[in-house]
């Protein structure tokens, strides 16, 4: 299960960044980039919360986040 979630979340990140490179090299159209990136949003936010839920908060000091 964890492996599947991990694979899907990585796929989400891949769908977020790879289409822009394909667009850069004239391999796909901008509309396809936008659609693929929506798939990336869905995959990433549907899977990564479960992967990070068990891990302790990564914020070292939660009140002191940078703001810029």
């Amino acid at each position: 299960m964890k492996l599947a979630l991990k694979t899907l979340s990585r796929l989400g990140l891949a769908f977020t960044i790879i289409p822009s490179f394909l667009f850069l090299f004239d391999l796909i159209r901008l509309e396809t980039v936008k659609l693929a990136m929506i798939a990336g949003v869905v995959l990433w936010f549907a899977t990564s919360p479960f992967l990070q839920a068990s891990a302790a908060s990564r914020v070292v000091h939660s009140e002191n986040q940078d703001n810029l």
């Binding site: 977020t16 490179f21 850069l24 980039v33 990136m37 990070q52 990564r58």
Partner: peptide, 28 residues
């Protein structure tokens, strides 16, 4: 604070890649 902090941690890697994608697409 906790929930949003956790959500921010989840979103961070994706956001960085969206910034990069925005730069690449606009450069093209």
């Amino acid at each position: 604070y906790e929930t949003v902090a956790k959500f921010a941690n989840i979103a961070a890697p994706w956001m960085v890649l969206v910034f990069l994608a925005c730069g690449i697409v606009s450069f093209k």
